[in-house]
Amino acid sequence: MASYVFMKILESAPQRYDMGINLISFGQGRRMQQEIVEEYVHKSNQVLEIGCGTGTLAISCAKKGASVVAFDKSSQMLAIAERKVREHNLIEKIQLEEMGAIEMEKAFNDNTFDRIVSTLVFSELYADEQKYVLSQAYRILRPNGLIIIADEVKPRSSWKRIVHSSIRIPLALITYLFTQTSTKALEDIKGPMTNAGFKIIRERRSFIDSFALFVGQKE
């Protein structure tokens, strides 16, 4: 009982993903990615990106000299990412894989990566999935390696919540109608990160508290 139009529109949604993310996050999505690259990614790092979408963050990491493995579950997103990687001449630096986050156990060996980065992905995962991904991330990170999660969060104070939802709800509707892209706020991620064994070394919030960057270290 589906509308065929809707199916067709959804099929081409990945092409509008970047636009949608920028709209709905007031450009915060991109700002956070720049911050991750500037502060946490170094030359010769082995970086894994969970849920790379159209590859923007992977490309910035590779430009800084890191070797990147990036995966996403959407083949259409990856097709766009692949084109962008080719345009930037970074084919040797970035390895793109089509897989879901829940398939990490067979794909990567223990102690492989220096950095695991993931933006606007954990909020899309359900509690059980987050637990799985964090435990896998812990396993495949090298000792002292960092996991950097940037995502949309719910503001902590109630007045900020009110201000935030009054802008966000109409914006989310419009963004979804035009780009079929939506995001949701991450609930508690520090708890699951700590449970997986990570030590939270930094938490930074921005934009009326609605975006946050969490950095965890494997001890």
């Binding site: 009982m1 589906a2 879901g100 398939e103």
Partner: peptide, 14 residues
Amino acid sequence: NVWCAARGSNFTAH
């Protein structure tokens, strides 16, 4: 929903 998600890469093996 099932059909739309299956056609629009939202209901996949993953």
